[in-house]
Design a protein around this nucleic acid. Structure first.
Lengths: 232, 232
DNA sequence: CGCGGCTTTGATGTTCATCAAGTAAAGTGG
DNA sequence: CCACTTTACTTGATGAACATCAAAGCCGCG
């Protein structure tokens, strides 16, 4: 697999300026722009590894990523799967020295990397920017926490229904989509065995709730899926 | 049960000044001091309820609290149990209008309440204060997230061992302590049935790992407990 | 074409929730 | 202070939910 590719763009005119850096003056945005690295990762590439030092503040501009941690040899636990317009999912970048979790691209992705020290300097200098980050971090953390709580309250079928609804609504906004993850990754996401994820898919097919061909999924009956997700 | 009691103290000389408000000027600390309410809750009292509007930034000065959410009639899920010197556990105070979770006192507790708008104003005015909050929020969120992940990777015995070690080390710093929660609350914390929590306690007693009398616990064999917590 | 990883299904046994019944402890009203 | 009620705790029995193991088909890739 090839190396990540570094690109460049103008932060002043970037769509993300309003989303992330809305409270910074032009001169500060220019500083960030000159210091940043915009890196393009291909599907499957690792963006950062748990254990590595945290040097950059990272923002997903484009693509889809999974945040996960290794829980043993050949075993991982997926913490969240997110699209852009979310804060960097590694919510501990401001409190730790090392990454506790890994981040990898599920689809081709573009990540903006800025020295974390520069971001901290900007926060110190500009309180409104700090408040914005505080709000974003607050939201991202809450999303991860509540996702974990929801998973824990459900049985197998309920968990599978939950992720299917998550992909359908939060990620692809469509009843038909290609799963960005393997069955095994779904299992790692919702803490169940791969075999039972597959079994649950088969049952959903049998019951006319969805149609699937490999990773292509079509949800046929949203209502049933919602009921299963809620009662599970 | 009686109403919460409001007290007063001088923030300038408060131990927490260094921990929370280390980056604020004296005049700002005085403003906060005049605007704050210090409220004393008795064991069992609710500090805030899910669904209520978020108006205050709350800081635990003293005591022990549980953060939880209602998941049905007469059912709740405990998200975390914390001592002071942690950021307010409701990590979404900066991103939401309403509390998603409830907070209740497990022991007599003292909570400092400051208008959230005043805190936001301070952040805007003083970036260093904002950076401090960002760091604290980052740490608190990470603790909640990783606790949830740890619970999910363990079987019943492993989960019970985990909470026992948590109380022993993080909360009481002793091998002998009084559990601040019922068996049922432990079950709500680690997503298992009350009966099986009790059963696991009984097995630990039978195996000489701990001694218990009601809520009083003495851990006899830390090593075994650690092994169970890790392999579970 | 063969190899390895992903997927699928069935069979098996373990883990766990649920139910039930009983005991102990703690609060409540007379 | 005692009878009463409720809540917490405990244990066993049962069945459901789930993981694990095994075997086979499929697909992409060298």
């Amino acid at each position: 697999m090839s190396q990540p590719v570094k690109n460049s763009c103008n932060c002043l005119t970037c769509d993300f300026r309003d989303l992330v850096f809305s409270n910074l003056e032009n001169e500060d945005v220019v500083r960030i722009c000159n210091a940043k690295e915009e890196i393009h990762y291909q599907k499957g590439q690792v963006i950062n590894n748990q254990g590595e030092p945290i040097r950059k503040f990272k923002y997903l501009k484009n693509g889809l990523v999974k945040l996960y941690r290794k829980t043993g040899v050949d075993e991982e636990q997926i913490i969240t799967i997110t699209r852009p317009y979310e804060f960097v999912s590694n919510t501990h970048v401001f409190s730790d020295e090392l990454y506790k979790y890994s981040l990898a691209a599920l689809e081709d992705s573009t990540v903006c990397c800025i020295d974390i020290e520069l971001i901290k300097e900007m926060v110190e200098k500009n309180g409104r920017f700090g408040l914005k980050l505080l709000t974003d971090l607050s939201r991202t953390s809450e999303n991860i926490i509540s996702l974990g709580l929801e998973i824990r309250t459900r049985n197998l079928a309920g968990r599978v229904a939950l992720v299917l609804l998550y992909f359908s609504r939060s990620i692809y906004n469509s009843k038909i989509f290609d799963l960005p993850v393997s069955r095994r990754e779904i299992a790692d996401f919702i803490s169940m065995s791969t075999a039972n994820v597959i079994r649950t898919f088969s049952e959903f097919k049998r019951d006319g709730i969805l149609e699937s061909n490999g990773r292509t999924i079509e949800i046929l009956c949203m209502e049933k899926l919602e009921i299963i997700s809620k009662r599970g």
